[in-house]
Simulated assay, not measured.
Amino acid sequence: MTGTELAVEGVTLTAGAHRLVRDVSLTARPGEMIGLVGPNGSGKSSLLRAVYRVLRPEAGQVRVDGADAWSMPVRHLARTVAAVVQEAGADFDLTVREVVAMGRTPHKRLLDGDTAEDRLLIESALTSVDAAELADRPFDRLSGGERQRVLIARALAQRPALLVLDEPTNHLDIRHQLDVLGILRRMPATVLVALHDLNLAAHYCDRLYVLCDGEVVAAGPPAEVLTPALLNDVYGVTAEVTVHARTGAPQVTFLPDEAARPALA
């Protein structure tokens, strides 16, 4: 598994008369972890859907290693790109191990069984997200956080060159948030991830793209992007941004309205 290059070039997305994303461009170089941040409704999920070929652009292109993703053969795309989405259901009548094994499907012919390599990759993926003990449990009886870890394991078992994730830390406790993002950070694959937690995004991502009202309003390394002025403009909040003494990453502290107001004389 090695990373691939992703290029989103002037993509515009619509749903009926509603424009979701307008003229958005971004790049992710092989092995980079790129974060999408922005308020609810800013277009993050819509843009990801265009990358993993669910929502076709009205204008612009999505290129994976130079090829138009929307013209690639489905099987080739499935071997190259894996997605972890927010709206994945829990109605699989399968065990956890069987769900994770689905990640190997793009690499097989019809009716092929699991090889020794497949089984090794499945067990490794389960172990990496701390879900090995869940392997024989029914997927539909797991908690939200457990299901999320299993779906991430399924994507890891796929061994993609590009991994696209929409809020992968949803439902996860703090330990598993850090574990999962640490796994993504260490992967040789290229990673495009939408995150709400700006401090996690600042710590784990090489570069950030900030979306607001369907447009990219800032892009670059976290230290350049996460400024008090931008956070006020995009999120409408007052924040202080410092450098974390141990990690060197930007540390965002949001201030309640009362703390932001000057003290009365």
Rank of each mutant, 00 (worst) to 15 (best):
68 D>Q: 11
160 P>L: 12
125 A>V: 01
90 A>E: 12
5 E>R: 15
161 A>G: 15
150 V>N: 05
208 L>A: 01
204 Y>L: 03
19 R>H: 11
203 H>D: 00
46 S>G: 01
110 L>C: 04
122 I>M: 09
16 G>I: 08
47 L>T: 14
200 L>Y: 02
72 M>K: 12
238 T>A: 14
233 D>Y: 04
3 G>Y: 08
251 Q>L: 15
146 E>H: 03
151 L>Q: 06
262 P>I: 05
123 E>L: 02
250 P>C: 03
87 E>V: 11
150 V>M: 06
249 A>S: 15
57 P>E: 05
135 A>C: 02
140 D>I: 06
210 V>D: 02
9 E>D: 12
129 V>P: 00
45 S>K: 04
178 L>S: 01
182 G>L: 11
37 V>N: 08
177 Q>Y: 00
14 T>K: 12
240 E>F: 04
47 L>K: 13
36 L>V: 13
112 D>Q: 14
154 R>Y: 11
121 L>K: 14
11 V>Q: 08
26 L>M: 14
27 T>D: 07
200 L>M: 12
34 I>T: 09
76 H>M: 04
91 D>M: 10
113 G>D: 10
244 H>M: 02
206 D>H: 14
159 R>D: 07
113 G>M: 11
182 G>A: 07
219 A>Y: 02
123 E>W: 01
92 F>G: 04
138 P>R: 12
116 A>Q: 11
257 D>I: 07
252 V>L: 06
92 F>S: 08
255 L>A: 07
131 A>L: 03
63 R>W: 09
12 T>L: 04
133 E>I: 00
40 N>Y: 12
27 T>M: 02
189 A>F: 01
41 G>F: 12
102 M>A: 00
193 V>G: 01
61 Q>I: 02
190 T>E: 00
8 V>A: 03
224 E>R: 15
236 G>A: 03
19 R>C: 06
160 P>I: 11
222 P>E: 03
197 D>F: 05
144 G>C: 05
215 E>V: 06
97 R>N: 01
53 R>L: 00
109 R>A: 03
54 V>W: 05
8 V>C: 01
143 S>E: 00
129 V>A: 00
174 I>T: 12
11 V>D: 05
126 L>E: 00
174 I>P: 06
242 T>L: 15
97 R>V: 06
236 G>I: 07
193 V>N: 09
35 G>L: 08
128 S>D: 02
151 L>K: 07
29 R>C: 01
231 L>Q: 07
112 D>K: 09
254 F>V: 15
82 A>S: 13
136 D>E: 14
135 A>P: 07
126 L>K: 13
74 V>K: 15
62 V>K: 14
62 V>W: 07
260 A>K: 05
197 D>H: 08
253 T>A: 13
57 P>W: 08
203 H>L: 13
224 E>V: 06
124 S>N: 09
106 P>T: 10
124 S>F: 03
20 L>N: 11
48 L>A: 09
226 L>I: 06
166 D>S: 05
6 L>E: 04
175 R>G: 04
51 V>W: 09
166 D>I: 02
103 G>R: 10
209 Y>A: 06
35 G>T: 13
137 R>H: 10
83 A>Y: 13
6 L>W: 09
239 A>L: 09
208 L>D: 08
172 L>N: 08
237 V>M: 11
40 N>R: 04
46 S>Y: 08
100 V>E: 04
194 A>E: 09
178 L>D: 04
159 R>N: 04
43 G>L: 08
51 V>R: 13
195 L>E: 00
245 A>G: 09
146 E>R: 14
37 V>S: 04
